[in-house]
Amino acid sequence: MVAAVEPAGPRPRPVTPARVGLYAFLVITALFFLTPLYVMLVTSFKTMPEIRQGNLLGLPAEPSLQAWGHAWSAACTGLACNGISVGFFNSVKILVPSVIVSIAVGSLTGYALSFWRVRGASALFGALMIVAFVPYQIFIYPLVRIFATIGINNSIPGIVAIHTIFGLPTMTLLFRNYFASLPIELFKAARVDGAGFFRIYSSVMMPMATPMLIVAVILQVTGIWNDFILGLVFAGRENLPMTVQLNNIVNSTQGERLYNVDMAATLLTALVPLVVYFASGRWFVRGIAAGAVKG
């Protein structure tokens, strides 16, 4: 705890008991955070006889990819045994249009709310920020009924609409705040040049908004990929996302549970957000910070 008051710049640092305690705390917590990932990995490479011997933390004696192959293409959900790959491709089918549509609607809304003096704009924005906190359970029954009436229940368009609806508050906030930080002269100059509403959006503002676009993509890709409840209710049995299928594989198995397959399937499901997280680095934190200031 001694070092925080030091001014910037390198200087020799004595090894004090406080410093040792600090590192001990960090290392122990880091182990707590890393253990689940490590256990998932080693379990997925073990064989079932080896798992039954115990030794949760041990490295696999004969590392095998068999569980991974089984998880990907042969694990059972109910009667169908086609592996979690079905869920993977369903999630991709849901993810791509949902990310595009939700960001398009959110950025357009944020743009209209920041540069254009529309009557009721601040009321609309304030209301969107408040409703972001309402639990999904409030909306589910009416939405199922509405979607059934207009014929998009249990379909890809239905789940895309759902992700657009529930992504709207955060996406709007993200883009509105970003556009509000841009100099207004930029907008005025485009107006003087005779550009209209959509022209300014597509040719001036969106190209400027690349950083926010990256943040929005990161937020939406991880958020939509990790979604469970909305996919379960609105995607339909043919399009269940990977998270729902993973839960079915692990929790509704008949007979002996294959823990190595379970862990391989779990890792496969976590792979997309983990890759996004480690590839995006500080952008991910920026996304959290930008999404965190809602309200």
């Binding site: 955070f33 890393l34 689940p36 998932m40 990790n226 779990t266 983990l274 996004v276 680095g281 991910f284």
Partner: peptide
């Protein structure tokens, strides 16, 4: 990165890992 990576994963993954642990 070590402290934040669990937040990038879903609650389903989190729940299943801890069920196993």
């Amino acid at each position: 990165s070590v402290f934040l990576y669990p937040f990038s994963m879903s609650f389903i993954v989190t729940g299943l890992v801890w069920q196993w642990l």
